[in-house]
Write a protein that binds this DNA or RNA. Structure first.
Lengths: 117, 117
DNA sequence: AGCTTATTTGGCTATCTTACCAAATAGCCA
DNA sequence: TGGCTATTTGGTAAGATAGCCAAATAAGCT
């Protein structure tokens, strides 16, 4: 893999990494229903404010959210709603996995090694 | 955030984590053009075989690829092509970010603090 | 069985990530 | 200015991740 190809995939992975954390997925999900301030998100998440703030700054660094200061509060807004489509795919993968597990289960009950009975 | 919500977002994050690595993104990209054996991928990637094998097992664990043994080789195939749609979104985010940087650049040249000139 | 090749697994170290606390910064209001 | 609240930043310790080497496993061939 040459250096340029490497750079492209590293850049893409960097953006995906921003989503690869339960708290940050939760934040994206919440923001998909409208902007929220740090304090609101913090209360919902139940972690330290500094932790939530750092998660938000990771999402911001990846270009997925924008922030807007209003008085004492900072409001975050989802900038790239297309990430929500991705979540549909994730859901599909998960359901797929569950179905596979279910066939394994049926297979072990019937003793059918291919699980196709 | 209650325990069940937590569990859902952790499961989703787990799947996204499987994609959050340049080598694994490269693998997914290659497999989108058809199945490949470990040796082919290893040669393209240029890392140790054991490293590539571990990446593949992570993708397999997430349910994104399937493997098929044929003789001495193991062929991997993309199981959930919808992840490719996601890559389009990633690309969009990246282009967005580049445009933002470009406006910042124009802004600093013109001295326009909003970059809208 | 013994040899060869392809792949996976175990072990180890170096690096990255995350969470919390404490302290700094920013904006409002008296 | 000084106090108050919201948010960010720095520091640090615990845990996760990634890479390589060496060894184990699996399958074909003679």
């Amino acid at each position: 893999m040459d250096t340029q190809t490497q750079a492209i995939f590293e850049a893409r992975a960097g953006i995906i990494k921003a989503l690869a954390h339960p708290t940050r997925l939760f934040i994206v999900d919440e923001l998909s229903r409208g902007e929220k301030c740090v304090c609101e998100l913090t209360e919902m998440i139940g972690a330290d404010v500094s932790t939530v703030s750092k998660h938000l700054s990771i999402l911001k660094g990846a270009g997925m959210v924008t922030d807007r200061k209003q008085g004492l509060n900072v409001f975050y807004e989802l900038k790239t709603p297309c990430v929500l489509n991705f979540l549909d795919c994730i859901q599909a993968v998960m359901e797929n996995n569950m179905q596979d597990q279910a066939s394994l289960f049926r297979c072990s009950l019937s003793g059918n090694p291919r699980g196709d009975g």
